[in-house]
Design a protein around this nucleic acid. Structure first.
Lengths: 202, 202
DNA sequence: AAGCGGTTTAACCAAGTGGTCAAATATACA
DNA sequence: TGTATATTTGACCACTTGGTTAAACCGCTT
């Protein structure tokens, strides 16, 4: 209200995101989204054509906030050591800044696996360059012998898991929200260390 | 029908599980569950009191198939090297045998974080013993210096991630269902190798 | 065959759902 | 100012939802 010009469309997207995240698409109610945005329900249909379209809009907006950074990292040509650092830092930073994304994606993934994978491929996201680089490094003897695809999945799992399973990990380790935030930041160096130790040839 | 005595209750649970898994609790329809089980909708209310209760029954049944094994591993007193192997093998084996669990848990996690964490703690699942063991091993100089909780999360992430994000990983790596199954089995040795390399003191 | 408990069914219901629409209001422009 | 255009609203609707209920069905004992 105050300083920001009231942009109804963005208002709706934000409200919809909030509701969709912890209710899911099926669990969310158009009325609840409208209430959250402080507007009339019919406006949702005025700006977006309906629930499905609104969900898709929210989802695409979410995707567009993290895909570019991810794509960039996967394709960037740089020394492997530095690339790992960049990879880890990018993933963790993006997710710390947008903590709602993982739950959102995983949710969509259950209901519509093919769609999301299609989106990724369609966007041009492709792990080939990095997989090749890993194999090269192995061939050159720079890093330990290992299967490239497993290494890739390891890296992803180390970065993403604490975000996906945030509530469990936080709960099990008995951490406050602030503590967990710190923990996630810490992980950047911790993961890099862990991975580097693991791949260094002895 | 044929050999098995028709046990309606189990029939319902199985049908409900199928539907709940890829529709979520909110997205699932009682009618669809009834159809899937080949029975009348009212029977669902006869055996279970309603949708919520039915979902809870399915969820608890799922939990009871993996919690015992996990709890056992966390508490088992054995040499650290062997424990890592057991840890990884247990998690991966349980999930290969029950591939529907991760999606189910993650789904429930979004809608009701506190409940699941409560269930875990209430069940007596507690990472303390293993965390302590890790710290001891470090103190004894058996493994590299590192933060125990990060190590724990690393281990979990390496094991669980490819199951949670199954469709993405499978899609991105362009694997068939059978190939991915093999990939998951492979991971048992791959993860153990990865972790051991990482923690071994140089 | 009659009676009885547990099981299964079809028909039904109230509440809530996404979606529509004409009217009201704000906004820009002449 | 007046008027056309875009935005916003309340009231409404057709339909689906989870849930209920009375009656039918089954397998049993007497």
């Amino acid at each position: 209200m105050s300083a920001t010009v009231k942009n109804t469309e963005k208002l709706i997207l934000e409200a919809a995101r909030k509701v969709f995240i912890h209710k899911g698409c099926a669990g969310a109610r158009m009325q609840e989204i409208a209430d959250e945005a402080g507007i009339n329900k019919a406006l949702l249909h005025y700006y977006f054509r309906g629930k499905d379209k609104l969900f898709e809009a929210v989802f695409l907006q979410a995707a567009s906030t993290f895909l570019p950074a991810i794509k960039d990292v996967l394709e960037r040509d740089m020394p492997f050591n530095q690339k790992i650092v960049l990879f880890v830092n990018t993933y963790v930073d993006v997710l710390v800044a947008n903590p709602y994304i993982p739950a959102f994606v995983i949710q969509e993934l259950n209901n519509n696996p093919a769609k999301f994978v299609g989106l990724l491929k369609n966007y041009g996201l492709n792990p080939r360059p990095m997989l090749l680089q890993i194999e090269q490094e192995i061939a050159l003897g720079h890093i330990r012998e290992m299967k490239a695809d497993h290494f890739m999945v390891n890296l992803l799992g180390l970065c993403l898991f604490p975000f996906i399973a945030r509530p469990v990990v936080k709960g099990i380790l008995n951490m406050s929200e602030e503590k967990y935030q710190e923990f996630l930041i810490e992980r950047k160096t911790e993961i890099v260390q862990f991975v580097k130790n693991s791949i260094t040839v002895s």
